[in-house]
Each structure stands twice: as structure tokens, then as C-alpha cells.
Design a protein around this nucleic acid. Structure first.
Lengths: 215, 215
DNA sequence: TAGATTGTTAATCGATTAACAATC
DNA sequence: TAGATTGTTAATCGATTAACAATC
């Protein structure tokens, strides 16, 4: 329902964090909250919260604030987690297993339908009740199970090839943990999680703090 | 050496990606590159590359471009990976194990000195030649081993307490995989990796693309 | 009603892109 | 030298913050 206005990626990056805080408030039994109160908890400006939300419509009420549960649900809809998404994990190493075992994703509607690897030693291994499958049947699996998202927890040298393969089989989005950029058609959605880059940013900040401390 | 000018976080976020691309060029035996050529590979503007680099000094040469190896090394220094960082992993579940087993971090100078958990069943378990330790000795361990970074791969309900504990023991930076914000003194560096938020951004984009496709 | 707080416009601030003189 | 490409200033664009009228 958000019309034609383009939502900036800065806003989209913040949405899940709003959702998390509102979820905690719901759990805590809080029924209403003002942008001011929420801003002090989240350490952002109240102005930013109101601006962000108003990209999607007016969810609050003057003089009252926001109904926590309602706003939580609305942001859930905006984030597209009011429905389920079929997902596969490619790469059954520790990281792949960690994602399969983290049940919160399923709670949010991301249904893990299959786990794949190319190591014959892992074939049939059970991870949270799911047998690891070999890569050869993956195209059919994607079609038969209406897979929307493929999570890549594989080494970087295999990532470009595997991502092309699953996209051709019909996957619409890639959650990419491989330490490389993928080269896919424009209409394929890619969300990168580059852990080594995250660690380098941490390292940058350490190096930089030290410097100012020594001055 | 970067003087007093404050570097924007937008620039810092891009630095590791420059470093990755330059590393690949070094491996590929490429000796020089222009901002234009790099920009077309990385799909950013040449102007942005030159602006970003000039925050830290002039690394190029008019009419020539940049020496790949030199620029790679210089960005490495800026990122603080020209030296080693002692690190511990708290939480020996799949995610913690994945990080311990991912040897590239060690190659970049992030030395994993210990792995901790509070599950007695895991005590002494070997992960890449390292015994899992119980939490009770962690304060001494941090002091004795000069630990700079603590990686938290533990559930969110434990994260705030554990992070305070290790900070008090002398840790300067937290690499936080727990799905919560930590509440630490200003001088402590926190780098968050919130996987569920990443997945929600992916989901947002899916929901949003569908909409425009249907119009 | 009076007080509170939103939705929204205007002002400010910062980041990106364009342009070009300097110079290798 | 002529051509290429940087470093850097200026112009543009976008995001954040401030302010306030609308209204619950």
C-alpha cells in the first residue's frame, strides 16, 4: 500500500530494529509508546522515528502516541514477515548448521525446507531432523518446493556458480555469507553478510581509538 | 597519521570492500589500477573512490593511477590489520564453532586465544585444537592473555551480563552476534552482526519487488 | 478544555557526484 | 610532449533534525 514513493535504504535498514524493540515492548506488556519515549530507548531522535514511520503511513495518534501491538504488526507487514518464505541452506558446515538450528528464523516465517552440500560424507546427516542432500537434485527441489530464498554458507570460490544455478532454478533471493560479491541479474535480490568485513570495521575502530587516546 | 579530520562511517563501511577487491587484484598479479577501472569492477563511482581514499592521504599518481599492492597494504594499515588482535569466542555452539574454524580470520591477524561456554557438557571439547573452557576462569584468562576482542555467540538473554563481565575484565571491543543491543560504556567498541535483521531486510525487498511486479 | 504528541513542512547537515586544474 | 588520471573544489543530491500547526 505504500504507493509510488521510493523508500530510502537508510530507512529500510532501521525498520528491523524498530521491529525488535517493539517486539520487546509487546512482550513486556507495554500498550502505548510515544516517539519520544521510544527514541530515548533506541538512542535515535524522535524526529527520525516519526519521519521513518510516515514513509509508510500514519500509525500514531496525536496526543496519544503509538499503539505498540498495532505498530509492531504493521511493521511486520511492511517487512513482509506476515507470510512464510520457503528457504534452503546451501553449505552444511558449522555456519549452515547454525542457521538451521536457530529456530527463531522459522518463528518469523522463514521455513527451512532443505539443506544441501557437495560433500558425500555429509549426505544424509541429520540436522534438526533434516537430512543433508547432495547438490545434484537441487534444481528439481527448488521447483517442487517453491523455494524463494537460498542461503549460501559455502566457500567464496563456489559461490558465483552455485548462485547462478539456483537462480536459474527459480530462486528469487540470495542470503549470501560467502566472502565475495555475486554477479546476478538485476531482478535477483541479494543480501550480503560479510563477516570478515564486519570484523575489519571493528578493527578500524580499535586502531582509531588507540590513536586518539595516545594524543 | 590521519590527522584530526573525522572520517565518516559511510567511508569506513566501504573500506573493507576496497581491501577485498584490491586483495583479489594482488592475487591476480595486477600491478596498477585507475579509479575508473576499479569503479567499474566494484560498481561505484570513480569519484567516490578518489574521495574515500583522499580521507587518508594521496595514494595515487596523476596519469598513472594506483599501485595495487601499495594501496592494498595502506588500506590494511588503516583498517588496523597490520598487527595482531587477541580474541576470544564466547558461546561454543554452531556459530561459535563456525568462527573458530574459519581460519581466514587468523590470517588477517585475529588470533583466537580461547573458546568459552557455560555448558558443562562442552567442557574440554576440542575445536580446531582448542579446548572449550568454562566461564568461571574468564576474567583471569582475559588479563593473562591480553584479550582485546570478545566475540559473543550466545543467546540474547545472556549477552548484556556477559558483555559487562568481559569489559570489566579488560576487553576493549565486542563482536556481538546476540540479537540484542548491549549497554556498555561509551569507550567500548561494539560491532553488531544481527542476522535476523539482515534476513528481514531481504524479506522487505522481496515483498516490495513483488508489489511493483504486480502493478 | 488543556496537554500531549503526531504528521509534515522547513532548515540544516552531510554525503555523493561532477568538474577541472595540477601533474605525472 | 600529449594523454591520462589524480587530488580537490564546487554543485547536487539526499538524509537528518528542528519546528510547529493540526488534532486527539
Amino acid at each position: 500500500m505504500q504507493g509510488t514513493k521510493k523508500i530510502s535504504s537508510a530507512v529500510i535498514k532501521r525498520l528491523p530494529r524498530y521491529y525488535r524493540y517493539l517486539g520487546e515492548l509487546v512482550e513486556g506488556g507495554v500498550q502505548r509508546i510515544s516517539s519520544k519515549e521510544l527514541s530515548s530507548r533506541m538512542k535515535v531522535t524522535a524526529s527520525q522515528i516519526r519521519q521513518d514511520l510516515n514513509n509508510f503511513g500514519g500509525f500514531g495518534q496525536q496526543g496519544y502516541g503509538y499503539n505498540v501491538k498495532y505498530l509492531y504488526d504493521e511493521i511486520g507487514k511492511i517487512l513482509g514477515i506476515d507470510r512464510t518464505h520457503n528457504m534452503i541452506i546451501i553449505g552444511a558446515g558449522n555456519l549452515g548448521q547454525a542457521i538451521v538450528n536457530y529456530t527463531d528464523f522459522e518463528k518469523r516465517g522463514f521455513l527451512i525446507k532443505g539443506v544441501f552440500d557437495n560433500d558425500p560424507q555429509l549426505e544424509g546427516k541429520e540436522i534438526r531432523g533434516m537430512r543433508v542432500r547432495m547438490m545434484n537434485g537441487i534444481t528439481e527441489f527448488i521447483r517442487d518446493n517453491n523455494i524463494e530464498i537460498a542461503t549460501l554458507t559455502i566457500p567464496k570460490n563456489a559461490a558465483k556458480e552455485v548462485s547462478s544455478l539456483v537462480v536459474q532454478a527459480g530462486v528469487r533471493a540470495i542470503w549470501n555469507f560467502a566472502h565475495t560479491d555475486l554477479n546476478l541479474p538485476e531482478n535477483v535480490i541479494v543480501e550480503n553478510v560479510h563477516l570478515s568485513e564486519s570484523l575489519m570495521r571493528l578493527s578500524y575502530t580499535i586502531a582509531n581509538r588507540e590513536q586518539s587516546e595516545h594524543e
